[in-house]
Design a protein around this nucleic acid. Sequence first.
DNA 1: GCTCCTTATACTCTGGATGAGTACATCTGG
DNA 2: CCAGATGTACTCATCCAGAGTATAAGGAGC
Lengths: 303, 303
Amino acid sequence: MTGVQLRAGLANADLIAVLVAVTDNEPRVMTLRAGEALPSGPFESQHRSLQSGLRDWIESQTGHPVGYLEQLYTFADRDREAPSEAGAARRISIGYLGLVREQVTPGTGQPQWHGWYEYFPWEDHRDRRPAVLNNIADRLDNWVGSDALRRERVDFLFGQNGLPWNEDLALQRYELMYEAGLAESPSRPAIEGFGRPMTGDHRRILATGIARLRAKIKYHPVVFELMPDSFTLLHLQRTVEALSGLRLHKPNFRRQIDQQELVEETGEMSSGTGGRPAKLYRYRPTVLQAQALAGPRLPVSRH
Amino acid sequence: MTGVQLRAGLANADLIAVLVAVTDNEPRVMTLRAGEALPSGPFESQHRSLQSGLRDWIESQTGHPVGYLEQLYTFADRDREAPSEAGAARRISIGYLGLVREQVTPGTGQPQWHGWYEYFPWEDHRDRRPAVLNNIADRLDNWVGSDALRRERVDFLFGQNGLPWNEDLALQRYELMYEAGLAESPSRPAIEGFGRPMTGDHRRILATGIARLRAKIKYHPVVFELMPDSFTLLHLQRTVEALSGLRLHKPNFRRQIDQQELVEETGEMSSGTGGRPAKLYRYRPTVLQAQALAGPRLPVSRH
DNA sequence: GCTCCTTATACTCTGGATGAGTACATCTGG
DNA sequence: CCAGATGTACTCATCCAGAGTATAAGGAGC
């Protein structure tokens, strides 16, 4: 599955997938080789589109249909792999983000699921600001030195000096850490405590997927692709929290869900969740929602 | 430039660029072959990254530096070109969106610039709802028939039946028109009045660029990459209007620009623009803005 | 049965941003 | 000097997001 393949009639490209599921309030990603690599394979031409081919492949691997599939990015930088001899083919990888509804029971099959905060422990702010951030900040201070621009960048990305933490910047944080030498690279080993390493640039691709998904859930109802058919509002909230790495304000979350009319009651109640039983809801898809929701504001004049 | 190229050591991929400039309040795109094609070329490996290679190439073509460059999408669907014999390589194209500050004087050089509303006349709502939309609506009604889902989709995308026009949906509108047979394809000629055709799937790629740019300008200060060093606020507004295809409310536009602190006065005034002379402004870039501005809301609890 | 704990659900209040409209200033051209 | 055009500064109503508070309804332990 890995390695360079050059067959006539096939494009010289790989597909590489960031497959996400949320189970037990933990976002997980499908991995191979004991969590070291994202699933990938050569791009075969027999399907009508990249999308449909990948969809089939994923379903055969996970046993579950892919609810949502989106192209992430095409990676082709020279430094993405170990320095190769001159003239060697540079491999192009087309990254995809996919959402699946349930997780295969871990342990049995080949593909394994790992919580994505194993790879990015500093991204989980649900309980508290993670302690790793202090170590990271120390190392980054070294890198910053007296460079004011670097200072501003670090403060902004990591929410220092009074600036707020912005969960959407996961990719840019990783890239800065890479730049500052805090992440593994072809010429640098991984640093203990700064997240589980992956082969090649897979960790960067994973960061791309996380950042994209975090941005997406705010204006697109893709969370529901990760939910079972019926769920409680708290369950939905916990899923969003898992993805964003933040705690949300419960009354406001419910108000938003409510007024967007994304869900409807099933009529049934959840069994013992600890406290008072909760109503069960189901997703209510509409063409309108499916395409675009709010979309940020532009001072449009309507008349 | 077109056709299949398979050389050892080169990836089998094209780069294809949507290069945008705004002159005389008209968004323009760089084209080749008398406006029939977007500039493209084989992906060569000598640069460190796709990005930097493309940047050099564009600057050599336009004579202007590229202010902003962003990967759009990688296109590889089977039906993007004329039906090919079985076993032929499928070409992968990596699309990019680039913004350049000024337009080369048209007529002299090889690359030409065309107003993008020549290709999508129904997307320009600055003066009024364009008349073409009526013809389009008629044809779409045929396609809709009695299918309620199609009805809803059309109404939503084209702002019918009381629904508002959403400028961000340019790509989806084009795709629906393609699906409904209103756009040229390998097996269908172009229809007079429904926008200038392009080779292959270039018109679709252009639509992708337009949609991306329209969405982007709302939460990212990329407009400034299209502006000269100093400009009046009305000039800035007209540029945003040109891109979005909408008219904006002047006082509110100024208020937004003002409170976001994106610009500062140069101290000089514009010469004759017709009425009262206007203050000139310049862009005031910050690391903070450069990375992300507002970003939509999630009901975060902060304590 | 009572208390405590947990979760569910319904309110209220406040500040800020947005959409919309109005008034006035200052230039050019005839 | 007036008309016309553009620039600039206000006001006002509405909506929505952030934040807090209060009450309802279940289970577990005593």
